[in-house]
Design a protein around this nucleic acid. Structure first.
Length: 929
DNA sequence: GCGATCACG
DNA sequence: GACGTACGTGATCGCA
């Protein structure tokens, strides 16, 4: 490869307006001062902009080597695009009031940083950027556009690339293809078809980016496509392409960037100039950016002296992290935390169970590429760890005494990955970590549905880095070590890397929250819930071992009887727990007709198959069903729950996963307390084992029909909303509407069918599914669904709209703004697509219900405290909250809890249906529910 | 380690 | 009209 000539131009163009807006929204939501100290002038965005510009300039010293640089701004006023299409950007809200005075200030800031500042009347920044880019490209130079705006992606070529300053990520041809499905040369055509709601580019109705890419790939370009639109197979799409052809052509004029803008500066005039403190410092002082002044002085001063300035080394598993063995060394890290105001924290323990875990070490990082590990409990418990470092560890209590003030310091932001775990462990050592950010929760708010949110996965996704795996240092299987048994040298590499990676992820994810409009979701549904769950998990729930023991032996006896009976009926002994052996007996030896097959092709023996056989008069299937029911209850609940009792607290502490579902629900593990039986009589007995301390009671409060109520609201189902407002039986009302029968004296079977349909709606109904559920024919099920759509036309509309937007955008959102990406919705496999479509329909409903109860949970501790109640929130089961409270506070607790739950959507959302909560106290969970 | 099954909302 | 599903989870078991 030939060496590049140094004389070649490398022009860096910063999208100043884009930068400014991102700075504003990033600052507006942070806790930092938004106004100038002396007179209250709003300068938050200017500070953010200046910080980013400074960061960009200093980063460039190593990561980039521009020869030329300029910041480009939009001209404030009408542009030529408004003459083509008066509504262009017409739906843009006015700029926030406190941003307006900052427009001139950022231009001043740019000049203060000694960077050319360019804008041209009648054109947008993008057109100026395009003109410079094409000019430089034509002369054989290179261009890097500092922006993540997709409207600029059409410019990407082998000489022109983009760089996303928030994500620190290059955008080249590959990334453009990722975004648009095709290369940069097709971007204009794709955007012309798909339109853009934020710029109010009309495009063609019903065509999103995915469809547009598909069409352009097939037909080559927009004009060819439009001229051959008759060939399109899909009726609606063909009609739209024909009817809206002119609209697509107009869209193209709006989308296509001009490359003939008269240039105020020649490229040569954009040559890099170094920072001029005489220019910069007066401006920063005028703005009263004291911290930035210090940083700039430090950076400029250190640049020549300190070879380590500039960006940190890329993570390569080879960074020399510090292992902290002395109190002065630890105090130096605390000082660094105070200086920087932000620190990534990770704890290492000897167990994944936060309620049983002992602290083994703590790792810290205050900037990318740096990190330390403070070993505290290696080789404890008299383990003969052959490691000279073991004796050098700082004693645990001394280290915690030094760490505690920093971890609790209001002015130092602690960053964690799944910080709930660390917070719970630390809380058991008397440390309440705050304030904090959690990269896992940020990822969940931003990228739900795109994959997991564990650190290894995030490091791969955002940093393209393979972390050291826990199993690499600890081993797997029976020989797996706990962290305290790992040599400190090995442990330190793993642990310090975790803190470093966490810090890097935070730098990427935090700005994305504001840029992608997910700050509210993160700040109102995710972050504040973590401490609430920590308290719940730590509280735990009391279990009556004796009740479970009695149930276990009762179940065991009845299982033995069933087993004997089954062997007798089968004429041979076999393992009732083996689906394979059951299948051999039933469908082989006894010659019964097999119903369904499993995914792998074997005959299914699941409950509904056995029930069918039992209904046909066969005895063995019923015995197997009885045995299975008992076996499930015994092995999953009555046998194992006693082993989950924590020896220190005498209670059971579940763990709630905050970022594992695609809908916003929590998930409960170790043990799962969200699937305690209730539907059968035997099963419900298990709930009597969930009890309270003496002098207390359990209170259970659950939302009635919350998902259906949310459907009625979201899809604007008038008659259903009325029914909820009137407090009538919703399933009977549905049946009455659908089948045109009076509610009075209704056949229970009719009501049952309506109920099944109401549930089906929530799941993204299909004729097949409904037929299966009700045991009716598919065509009959289809008639029901059609009748439903006719009576509740809003539901059809909701489903169509939701699927259409999911196909176009790739995601769906709840009424609270929680987003879930739905993959496979444009898949060519109809089964896959159908599945994704049902997901798209269900997620905003299930997710909104999850959002509502999260809001209630977040407000609950303060509400109880304000009412002088001592109730403790113990459990959450999706639409139900369980509390333990003093007996004489039961009534008041029920009232307060209900009030908070009912009012949870407000003020963010005003529901057009009432929410109903049933709250009751009892001596055990069964009684309270 | 994975599929089948079944507990919950 | 294809394809094979009701949505979202976690724990346990048998079996490779």
């Amino acid at each position: 490869m030939a060496a590049k000539s140094k004389s070649e131009t490398r022009l860096y163009l910063v999208d100043g307006s884009g930068y400014l807006f991102r700075a504003y929204f990033a600052m507006a939501r942070s806790r930092e001062g938004l106004t100038r100290q002396s007179d209250g002038l709003p300068v938050g965005a200017v500070l953010g902009f200046s910080n980013m510009l400074n960061k960009l300039l200093t980063d460039m010293q190593d990561e980039h080597d521009p020869t030329h640089l300029a910041v480009i701004f939009d001209y404030s006023g009408k542009t030529f695009r408004n003459e083509i299409y008066p509504d262009y950007k017409g739906n843009r809200p006015d700029a926030p009031e406190d941003l307006i005075p900052q427009f001139p200030l950022v231009r001043k800031a740019t000049r203060a940083f000694n960077v050319p500042c360019i804008e041209t009347e009648g054109f947008e920044a993008d057109d100026i950027i395009a003109t410079y880019a094409r000019n430089v490209e034509a002369d054989g130079g290179e261009v890097v556009i500092i922006s993540s705006d997709k409207d600029l992606m059409q410019l990407v070529s082998d000489k022109v690339s983009m760089f996303d300053p928030m994500k620190n990520k290059k955008i080249g041809r590959e990334e453009v293809i990722e975004k648009f499905g095709l290369g940069p040369e097709h971007v204009v055509d794709i955007q012309s078809l798909a339109g853009d709601s934020s710029d109010n580019v009309p495009g063609v109705p019903g065509v999103g980016i995915k469809t547009a890419a598909q069409l352009i790939e097939e037909y080559g370009d927009l004009e060819t496509l439009l001229s051959r639109a008759e060939e399109i197979k899909q009726n609606k799409r063909r009609e739209n392409l024909i009817e809206f052809a002119e609209q697509a052509r107009i869209s193209k004029k709006l989308v296509e960037l001009r490359t003939d803008v008269p240039l105020e500066f020649a490229v040569d005039e954009l040559k890099m100039r170094s920072i001029d403190l005489d220019l910069l410092l007066p401006f920063l002082e005028e703005m009263e950016f004291t911290k930035l002044i210090d940083r700039v002085k430090r950076e400029v001063g250190m640049a020549d002296l300190d070879a380590r300035s500039g960006p940190p080394p890329a993570p390569d598993g080879d960074i020399a992290y510090e292992t902290v063995f002395s109190e002065p060394a630890l105090k130096a890290w605390i000082a660094r935390a105070h200086e920087r105001g932000v620190i990534a924290v990770d704890t290492e323990t000897d167990s994944l169970n936060a309620m049983r875990a002992n602290l083994v070490g703590v790792s810290l990082s205050t900037r990318a590429g740096e990190g330390c590990y403070i070993p505290l409990g290696h080789g404890a418990e008299g383990l003969a760890l052959d490691d000279e470092d073991t004796g050098k560890q700082i004693p645990l209590d001394k280290a915690l005494k030094i760490l505690k003030p920093m971890l609790e310091d209001e002015s130092i932001l602690k960053i964690g990955q799944n910080l709930k775990y660390d917070a719970l462990v630390l809380s058991r050592y008397g440390i309440n970590i705050a304030p904090f950010d959690d990269t896992m929760l940020m990822s969940y708010a931003l990228d739900c549905g795109k994959g997991g949110h564990g650190m290894d996965e995030l490091a791969k996704r955002h940093l393209d880095y393979e972390t050291i795996k826990f199993s690499d240092v600890a081993g797997t299987g029976k020989k797996a070590k706990t962290f305290d048994q790992i040599a400190i040298k090995e442990a330190a590499k793993y642990a310090a890397e975790d803190a470093d990676i966490t810090f890097r992820l935070w730098e990427i994810l935090k700005p994305r929250l504001a840029a992608e409009g997910k700050t509210t979701v993160y700040e109102t549904l995710e972050r504040p819930l973590a401490p609430v769950i920590v308290a719940m998990e730590r509280e735990g729930v009391k279990i009556d071992k004796a009740v479970l023991a009695r149930l276990s032996s009762d179940f065991a006896q009845r299982m033995a009887a069933a087993e004997a009976e089954a062997h007798k009926l089968a004429g041979e002994d076999f393992n009732l727990g083996s689906p394979k052996q059951i299948s051999d007996i039933l469908f082989g030896k006894l010659g019964l007709p097999g119903g369904k097959k499993t995914a792998k092709g074997a005959w299914s023996t699941k409950a509904d198959v056995l029930e069918q056989l039992a209904a046909e008069g066969h005895d063995l299937p019923q015995v197997l069903l009885d045995w299975r029911g008992l076996s499930k209850l015994k092995s999953t609940y009555t046998d194992s729950l006693p082993g989950e009792i924590n020896p220190e607290t005498g209670r059971v502490h579940t763990s709630y996963a905050m970022a594992s579902t695609t809908t916003g629900r929590l998930a409960s593990t170790d043990p799962n307390l969200q699937n305690i039986p209730i539907r059968t009589e035997d099963g419900r007995k298990i709930r009597t084992a969930f009890i309270h301390e003496k002098g207390s009671v359990l209170v259970s409060a659950d939302y009635s029909q919350i998902e259906l109520r949310l459907v009625a609201h979201i899809a604007d189902l008038k008659s259903m909303k009325q029914a909820f407002a009137d407090g009538v039986d919703i399933h009977a009302l549905t049946a009455s509407e659908m089948f045109d029968v009076p509610v009075e004296g209704m056949d229970p079977m009719i009501r049952r069918r309506a109920k099944a349909i109401n549930f089906g709606i929530i799941y993204g109904i299909s004729a097949f599914g409904l037929a299966n559920q009700l045991g009716i024919s598919r065509s009959e099920a289809k008639d029901y669904i059609d009748a439903y759509f006719k009576k509740f036309p809003g539901i059809r509309q909701y489903m169509d709209d939701t699927i259409a937007s999911a196909k176009a955008e790739g995601f769906v959102e709840t009424i609270f703004g929680r987003r879930t990406y739905v993959g496979g919705i444009n898949d060519k496999n109809p089964a896959m697509r159908g599945y994704s479509e049902r997901q798209a329909i269900n997620a905003p409903i299930q997710g909104a219900a999850a959002d509502v109860i999260r809001r209630a949970m977040i407000r609950m501790p303060a509400a109880l405290k304000k009412a002088h109640l001592n109730a403790k929130m113990l459990l959450q089961v999706h639409d139900e909250l369980i509390f333990e409270c003093p007996k004489d506070e039961a009534d008041k607790t029920c009232a307060v809890v209900s009030e908070i739950m009912v009012g949870a959507p407000a003020p963010a959302v005003t529901l057009s249906v009432p929410l109903i909560v049933d709250a009751r106290a009892g001596n055990n969970w069964d009684e309270a529910h």
